[in-house]
Simulated assay, not measured.
Amino acid sequence: MTTIAELVSSAGGLLHRRDLVAHGATDRHLTVAVRSRNVVRPRRGWYSTWPPHDPRFVAVAVGGRLTGASALHLLGAWSWSSRRPPVTVSVPLTASRLRRRRGVRVVWDPVDLSCRGSTWAVDPRDALARAVVEAPSFEDAVILVDWAREAGIVQDDDDAAEVLSRKSMDAAGLVAWSEGGAESILESAAGTRLRRAGRHVVRQIPVSGTNKIIDMVVDGIIGFETDGRAHHERRFDEDRVKDADIAREGRVPFRASAMMVKNRWRSTAEAIDALIFTAGGPRRVEDVVNSSLPRVLGPQGRRSWRLAIPRRSAGQEFPIGGT
């Protein structure tokens, strides 16, 4: 006979009493399961196999669902921080009888948002709309958008712009800064930093005559690749061959490790600038950003970043600068 715990586990770790009754559970079965600690009730009517400290359990216990960064973290969102983000719980404007918990933030969302998502989290698209405007920095916001594109949470530019503008209109401008194609947090962060420095970045460019793809091409000159340690050690020879292929088609290959992107970006960027100038490209001009990209503004209120309202453009311009 299937146990209460097995039914709850098979449903993902959370099930309502009415669903258990539909499977044949009686009040006696439910009482025994709770007393034996095979399941726990985070809230009246709900039964779970999650530990009480699980963010999903906490959200249900409060009376809502996970949202923002805390919801995306459980889906594998890219982040520089190894720490779990603080729990943010979404409740509808009509919610009542909430059970507040220390360290847990409760936000009030429109009732129609309750129609989307799961029993323990809002729809990932709604979570993304909140997470980007609450991101600790502009770079972190772009990283979330790049991850959402890679994970298939948003599709084309129009779809991404609609989702990102749900909390704040200016957040739609992240679409221009993201453009898709980043396959890791290293690619995402490096691309954003180069664009903010006025460089033109295009992702996922084929190497002529091969089946290889360059992570990104900078100013049409640098074939820029980012590698984690495990990738580097496993594909050392293949990567050297790829560098040669990049050079043969007239680009300068440049490869950066995770440490070079995360902890030594200044020297990494200086090396890229030097290679571009040596190859005949423009010198980087301080405080000049591609004019097709929405301008990054300073913090205001609870937000650590803002964008000027985006304007339509055919694409990213090359930087203006002397040689």
Rank of each mutant, 00 (worst) to 15 (best):
V111L: 04
E317H: 11
V142W: 02
R302L: 08
A121F: 02
I222M: 02
A121R: 07
A247M: 10
R312K: 11
V132H: 01
D239E: 14
V107D: 00
K262M: 03
A22G: 11
S118N: 05
L194H: 10
T119M: 13
F254E: 11
S137V: 02
G152C: 10
V296T: 04
S79I: 00
S178T: 05
A258N: 07
R97N: 14
K167E: 08
A197W: 07
I320S: 13
R100A: 10
A59R: 01
A151G: 14
G117S: 02
R240G: 01
D146E: 04
D123E: 13
G152M: 04
N211I: 02
T49I: 10
R17K: 14
G223W: 10
V40D: 03
D243W: 14
R37D: 11
I185C: 05
L307Y: 04
M169L: 13
S168K: 05
R234T: 13
L174C: 03
V289I: 15
I222V: 14
R193I: 13
T94V: 11
A176E: 14
T268H: 12
G152H: 07
A33S: 14
P310W: 10
L275I: 07
T94P: 00
I153L: 07
V175W: 12
R37W: 13
R43Q: 09
R193S: 08
I4M: 02
V89R: 00
Q204H: 11
W78D: 03
W78V: 00
D27P: 12
I185S: 05
D109K: 07
T119R: 15
G223Y: 12
V145L: 10
R99C: 04
I309G: 00
V111S: 04
T67I: 10
S292N: 04
S114L: 12
R283V: 14
L30V: 12
I143W: 01
V62A: 08
G76N: 04
P92Y: 14
R37M: 05
E150L: 13
E317C: 09
H200T: 03
P86Y: 01
L30I: 13
A77E: 00
G280I: 11
S118F: 03
W120R: 08
S81Y: 00
P92L: 03
R203N: 11
W305V: 03
S184E: 07
R193Q: 09
L7W: 15
S304V: 11
S114C: 08
G76F: 02
